[in-house]
């Protein structure tokens, strides 16, 4: 019951914050110089064509009218028509969204699994050579610009060793295709955050391993692996999960670069094209979808606290 109430209140707050973001975006992009008609027509912008196009795109109406038109369409689940591509925004987003979801999930998995393993290893071998080496490696991955990492991965794994393809978009959904096409982009997206996760896991675990109850467990003669994975890990997870929520938002930002380097369709690139072309409906649509993603992820993260640590109360 508490959970239901909690979910509901979260949903309301989520919708509210999405609404705020979309509204800010709606006005921010319109209140500045350079409208999509200029961008679209470029050198061909004769006064007649400008007038025709402005009217055809409904940009001649006052701002508040445009806003209400937008809201009314939104209520019907219609995101409008992309000005540039003249295709419905829902279609354009729907086409690329699955690619983004797969890339995000693969990237998150890589960063969490690699990060936790490296972090746990470093914590257990606290202050050893392996600890220093792995932490240095993590620091390096954190500090390389994303596209350089992408270039390096392509150069090594695709061109030199020919393990994975250069082009990162998967056309079919077979396991083989997914594995082949997703690995490099996901690594490029996930490695940096794996560094963050590893450093965080390590510092948390070092503290847990030095705490009283682990010492008690040790004195009871429990095996090291049991201690690490049963006890220390559980305590690490809570703080890890809260971090992942933030990481997902950062990772969403990393999408633009990763998708560009690996020539993958996706939300990041769609957003980028929309911004460059000042394609208002497409911008609003992609901003909305990204905001929804953020809200949903944050909510899931909060929910999962309860699963990891049943002591937590939803209030």
């Amino acid at each position: 019951m508490a959970l239901l109430k909690y979910t509901l209140s979260r949903a309301v707050r989520g919708v509210l914050s999405i609404f705020v973001i979309v509204t800010i975006a709606f006005f921010a992009i319109r209140l500045v110089p350079g409208d999509p008609v200029d961008v679209w027509l470029g050198d061909y912008a004769t006064p007649e064509l400008v007038a025709l196009t402005t009217a055809a795109w409904g940009l001649d109406k006052p701002l508040h009218v445009q806003y209400f038109v937008f809201l009314r369409q939104l209520a019907k689940g219609d995101l409008g028509t992309s000005l540039r591509a003249n295709a419905s925004v829902t279609y354009l987003i729907g086409e690329v969204f699955p690619y983004t979801v797969r890339l995000m999930m693969a990237g998150a998995l890589i960063s969490v699994i690699l990060g936790v393993l490296i972090g746990a290893y470093a914590a257990v071998r606290h202050n050893s050579v392996g600890d220093v080496a792995s932490m240095t490696a993590c620091m390096v991955f954190l500090s390389i610009p994303g596209f350089v990492l992408g270039y390096l991965l392509i150069f090594l794994f695709a061109v030199t060793w020919r393990i994975f393809p250069v082009i990162g978009g998967e056309k079919t959904l077979s396991v083989a295709a997914l594995w082949r096409h997703l690995t490099l982009p996901a690594l490029s997206l996930g490695l940096g955050y794996a560094g963050t996760v590893a450093r965080m896991t390590r510092s948390t675990m070092v503290e847990v391993l030095n705490s009283d109850y682990i010492r008690t467990a040790r004195s009871k003669g429990l095996r090291q692996s049991t201690i690490v994975f049963r006890h220390a890990m559980r305590n690490t997870l809570t703080s890890l999960v809260s971090m992942i929520g933030v990481q997902v938002i950062v990772m969403l930002g990393g999408l633009v670069v990763t998708e560009t380097v690996f020539s993958r369709p996706g939300l990041g690139r769609l957003y980028f094209t929309a911004v460059s072309a000042r394609d208002y409906p497409l911008m609003q649509g992609s901003i909305l979808v990204i905001a929804v993603c953020v809200v949903v992820v944050t909510f899931l993260v909060d929910l999962s606290y309860g699963i990891i640590d049943p002591r937590i109360q939803y209030t």
Binding site: I154, V166, I167, F262, S263
Partner: peptide, 14 residues
């Protein structure tokens, strides 16, 4: 669609 020249040439190479 491959925006980057170098990547496109990599793809030609492979």
């Amino acid at each position: 669609l491959i925006a980057d020249d170098m990547i496109a040439l990599d793809a030609l190479e492979t």
